[in-house]
Design a protein around this nucleic acid. Structure first.
Length: 364
DNA sequence: CTCCCGGTCC
DNA sequence: GGACCGGGAG
């Protein structure tokens, strides 16, 4: 029986039932932070497990508890000792927050972690997902987690083909996570989701044949497990502007030898003007004085802008045609080139393309 | 080797 | 939306 929540998300008890059944028979049950309701131990494990895999955490967890057996021991310890125990685990903000959190729980809660996930999430180093996990494992509180593993499982099962880092997509995942919570057995369910993501629904080579969600998995049905979840779009490359002048006189175009270093190093190109100075409707007015360095300007007209993509930035090129009635005397790095043999000029591809298209109409 | 990943905080 | 770090994948 499926029904909609007030937020329009599909409830589906068979989902959590499948996860819980699988967790009980195939999940992990003997990790050092399992089989306890000790919030201190659960909290410590959850913080260590942020950004860090189980295998790496095991040894640190044991040593840490040996040195700081109780929350009070940790709160009372000098920070250097806490940092020393964390050394090698990475993300040292976690250790500083851990120590600060221990002190706050001692000071504000008498040494007992609050059971309300919202109060937990107010403590340093504990976000929404970690708060839910601690609360579920230590109190049986019905709260949704959404860590990297769960995002991956959901993205595949529900065929979410947008990057989960986008706010709206992530909000939708939280709503799903909430709607899918079981009425009972939150501990097995939460652990089951984590275990599924960690052991079967792995980033690469997921073990679909063993997955309890296989029959309802969109990614499996459509052969898209390798594409989901959608990867983080690589950071937006910078946008740069350049204005290029197509200075024409007597069937020749003015070319400029570019510097050896930098983009298009050593090639010929069109004279370049800083793009930001000549953008928009004012472009033509800004170009005319520049063009006058090359002779007596008869007319300036804007040509169709183009975009050229490099590996490291995107270049927006605003070309301007400058017609001269008389040439100024120009030496290096300038030279005049016959438009008729422009095809043989050592020009970068977009510039050659621009000039060829400019010449093409005259062929008719 | 380089690329990619990840909870929380800022 | 990037920084924090170490580990896993390719």
């Amino acid at each position: 029986m499926k029904r909609l929540t007030e937020f329009g998300q599909l409830e589906d008890p068979s989902f959590s039932a499948a996860v819980i059944d699988w967790q009980k028979s195939h999940g992990r049950h003997a990790l050092p932070w399992q089989n306890t309701r000790d919030a201190y131990r659960i909290w410590l494990s959850e913080i260590m497990l942020q950004q860090t895999q189980v295998a790496a955490v095991l040894a640190y967890y044991a040593r840490f508890l040996e040195r700081f057996p109780t929350l009070h021991d940790l709160a009372a310890a000098p920070s250097e000792e806490v940092m020393a125990q964390w050394s090698g685990l990475g993300y040292y903000t976690r250790a500083r927050n851990l120590h600060a959190c221990a002190k706050r729980v001692v000071d504000e809660y008498g040494g007992l972690f609050p059971s309300d996930p919202a109060l937990l999430a107010d403590l340093p180093g504990i976000g929404r997902s970690t708060a839910a996990a601690i609360s579920a494992f230590s109190n049986g509180t019905r709260a949704a987690i959404l860590d990297g593993n769960v995002k991956r499982v959901f993205a595949r099962v529900f065929g979410i083909d947008e990057f989960p880092g986008v706010k709206a997509v992530e909000d939708g995942l939280w709503r799903r996570a909430q709607a899918l919570l079981p009425q009972d057995g939150i501990e097995s369910y939460t652990q089951g989701l984590m275990d599924l993501g960690a052991t079967l629904c792995t980033r690469s080579k997921p073990d679909c044949p063993r997955c309890p969600l296989r029959e309802r998995c969109v990614a499996h049905a459509t052969g898209r497990t390798a594409e989901l979840p959608v990867r983080k779009p690589k950071k937006t490359i910078p946008e740069k502007q350049a204005a290029l002048l197509v200075v024409i006189e007597g069937g020749q175009v003015l070319l400029e030898q570019r510097a050896q270093s930098g983009i298009w190093g050593g090639l010929m190109s069109l004279p370049e003007v800083d793009g930001h100075a000549v953008r928009g409707a004012l472009g033509i007015d800004a170009v005319a004085p520049v063009g006058s360095a090359f002779g007596e300007v008869e007319e300036v007209s804007a040509l169709l802008p183009l975009v050229h993509v490099f590996t490291h930035y995107r270049l927006h090129i605003a070309p301007f045609q400058v017609a001269l009635s008389r040439r100024a005397h120009l030496g290096a790095p300038y030279l005049w080139w016959d438009l008729a043999r422009i095809d043989s000029a050592p020009l970068p591809a977009p510039v050659k393309k621009l000039l060829l298209e400019l010449c093409a109409p005259s062929l008719f």
